[in-house]
Design a protein around this nucleic acid. Structure first.
Lengths: 226, 226
DNA sequence: CGTTGTGTGAACGCTCTGTTACAGCGGCCG
DNA sequence: CGGCCGCTGTAACAGAGCGTTCACACAACG
């Protein structure tokens, strides 16, 4: 069996021990670059990421792994109880999570269920909203059947917005969730990318992205599921 | 939002309470037949099954739900630590599990992630009062089903008032709570915004905001009623 | 009937956004 | 190695939208 990828490096002893006991081989890495260096020829069988030591680094780590040509999965996140709120809007970064400190048998059961589940293939590869279709596997986008030639950042921004239709996001939230790091003084960057997206969507569909003055931007219509 | 299906009936109070607090409506059933009888027209939005009281009955319950024409999902299983071994070879009966006793926030986080994963939308955060609905996620407002086109300050003011219905606020309080503590401006500003709000609410609902002479403004009916 | 408080309309000025242009950077190819 | 090109972030400007203020009319209350 191919090894699991662990983060950070070195992993805490109780995690290493639990995986050893459960019979899962593993290697650990602190950075995506290191993970790429250590990756076996057949790829990782999955990943376990500890989020409660350095949350920002951990989420950035996950994000990179998920944006590869072949997204790494399954990905199990270890979080502390106080971090449960951090999972919001980050659903796409993990497949399952486990509260830490954890019971070794719970970790084992989660990994087992994850491998069973991913074997059956359940990850969504399409994001659709009205005339818009995003193919997450091929990084292609289309509006009303017409292919869109989007750059990387445009695609990521549109994907994030379209995954959360109707919801308003401030520029700061967009910068931290799409760009992936805390950002100082460059909020206008979002405006420009929004403009480029609108231009490529075409006049007809430019209104898919709406401006909410003094707040931020919103994609599509709200869910009035009252 | 359609209710969740719970098993057994009645569910333990801590489970019922956790779901209530998280805002998920639910109905409980002991048998698949009972579940079929209680099922809403649009189907269940998901299921939460307690497995540690009567494991055999619980697994049989899950199996029946999964063998329907439209398999019920997502299905969250609540198990005790000693039952983790029982999950083996039963992966197809559940989508996720949670150790019991559980932390309410873990249950909520698992449900949220499950709904995201299976594509079922999450419920929006709403502020409601009579015919008025404020969607806090989309920054949109509606009165009697009709969308309201509010500016930022109008929305903030209405949100503050509507979240404290029946209570009277002086202009100074409103300025400090809505505009901000450091705000230094004329009290008449509030009047103008109130006026514009009333105009947009329409003649029919303008009385939702009442003037309390020499004091300030009040939204909705007073608590001690008329 | 006078005083005080509130509704109303218009106008000013600021804040926020759309838009354009440009510089840095890295990749690609000759 | 050097030049070209596409992507990205930043700065600057203009315009529109919005909040604030003012002036006056009107209502409430003694």
């Amino acid at each position: 069996m191919e090894p699991l990828l662990l983060h950070p490096d070195p992993p805490p002893p109780e995690l290493a021990q639990a995986l050893d006991l459960a019979g899962y081989p593993w290697k650990s890495a602190s950075t995506p670059e290191e993970a790429a260096r250590l990756e076996p020829a057949d790829g990782w069988s999955g990943a376990v990421v500890l989020a409660h030591l350095d949350p920002e680094a951990a989420f950035a780590f996950c994000r990179t792994l998920r944006r590869r040509d072949v997204p790494l999965e399954p990905l199990l996140l270890l979080v502390s109880g106080g971090q449960l709120g951090d999972l919001e809007l980050r659903d796409d970064l993990f497949d399952d999570f486990c509260l830490s400190p954890f019971h070794p048998r719970e970790l084992e059961a989660r990994l087992k269920h994850l491998f069973w589940r991913t074997g059956t293939g359940t990850r969504p590869e399409l994001v659709e909203y009205g005339p818009l279709v995003l193919n997450l596997e091929t990084y292609q986008a289309a509006i009303a059947g017409r292919p869109l030639d989007l750059t990387y950042m445009e695609y990521e921004l549109l994907k994030f917005l379209a995954t959360n239709p109707g919801k308003v996001f401030t520029r700061e939230i967009l910068l931290s969730r799409v760009w992936g790091y805390e950002y100082y003084g460059g909020a206008r960057t979002v405006d420009v990318h929004i403009r480029r997206l609108r231009a490529k969507l075409g006049e007809e569909h430019a209104s898919l992205i709406q401006t909410v003055r003094s707040v931020g931007y919103r994609f599509g219509q709200p869910r009035w599921s009252v």
